[in-house]
């Protein structure tokens, strides 16, 4: 005999409430922790050594991956836009349009995604492991604020380094675009650079750098928070890492839209 579920059971409002309640709690907890991070950033002791270590890890050591992704993004963009512009004889615009896309959008977003994949995952995994192996508690017992000691350097380092990585991305992306458009596709080099100089304003670059700063803060804070709140042994650490990366990526892409809309309106 089949048991008929009532509509109350199907909808399970209490489960929905529980689900949204948990999400809301997490959001509130996250926001409070980030507020603490911001506060603690300007509070002694300044652990510059730790900050520099994180800056080296997040920024300097990401140079190669950014170089590769930037170059190939520029190259593929040159190919794709060339197809379109050649249809109405404006091949010279390939450079300007590619560079505009790179500086305004692709640079900050792809750099942030690459750093999320490389450093964001590392933060979540590292902090998760420290949490489940009770190293975080050990810091507590040593009267060291783990948020101040662990989160602040990472988040500050990511926020500071992302714009520089974006500059690198923009630069190598433009070079990649040039090397495909000019020698391979035969675009006039003078036209190529001329159009870039004519159409690209420094505002385009600065807008991208501002976005990447925001993305740097977001990816580091989400990664760190997810690792910091991990529980349940090695499995929990794995879950925290995956969720941290996925959340950070989604936040970056969704946030990019609103941030662009906001900057567009300004």
């Amino acid at each position: 005999m089949a048991v008929e579920k009532s509509w109350m059971e199907v909808l399970a409002p209490e489960k929905w409430a529980e689900f949204f309640g948990r999400r809301l709690t997490t959001l509130g907890d996250f926001t409070l922790m980030m507020a603490r991070v911001v506060r603690l950033t300007f509070r002694r002791p300044f652990r510059t050594q730790l900050l520099f270590q994180q800056m080296e890890f997040i920024g300097v050591k990401s140079w190669f991956i950014i170089l590769l992704t930037g170059t190939f993004t520029g190259m593929v963009f040159a190919l794709q836009t060339y197809r379109g512009f050649a249809k109405f004889g404006s091949q010279a615009l390939v450079g300007a349009i590619s560079v505009m896309a790179i500086t305004r959008e692709l640079g900050p977003v792809l750099t942030s995604l690459m750093v999320t994949a490389r450093a964001g995952s590392a933060m979540a995994a590292e902090l998760g492991t420290m949490r489940v192996t009770e190293q975080v508690d050990a810091l507590h017992t040593m009267a060291v604020d783990p948020v101040h000691y662990l989160l602040v350097p990472r988040i500050v380092a990511a926020t500071l380094m992302l714009p520089f990585l974006t500059i690198l991305f923009d630069f190598v992306g433009t070079l990649g675009c040039y090397f495909v458009a000019v020698p391979l596709l035969g675009v006039d080099p003078g036209d190529f650079t001329g159009r870039i100089l004519e159409l690209i304003k420094i505002g385009d670059v600065l807008q991208g750098l501002f976005k990447s700063t925001v993305f740097g803060f977001l990816l580091a804070s989400i990664g760190c928070y997810r690792g910091f709140t991990a529980d349940g042994g090695a499995k929990g650490v794995g879950e925290a890492t995956v969720q941290g990366v996925v959340f950070a990526c989604i936040t970056i892409l969704v946030g990019d839209y609103f941030l662009t809309a906001l900057l567009f309106a300004a």
Partner: peptide
């Protein structure tokens, strides 16, 4: 690490400044 970070940032700052001058 400070030195490496400094070098990295300095190089990219030069790139930014250069392109800024070019673009303006």
């Amino acid at each position: 690490p400070e030195v490496r970070v400094g070098l990295f940032v300095a190089v990219l700052l030069v790139v930014l400044l250069w392109s800024a001058l070019k673009l303006t």
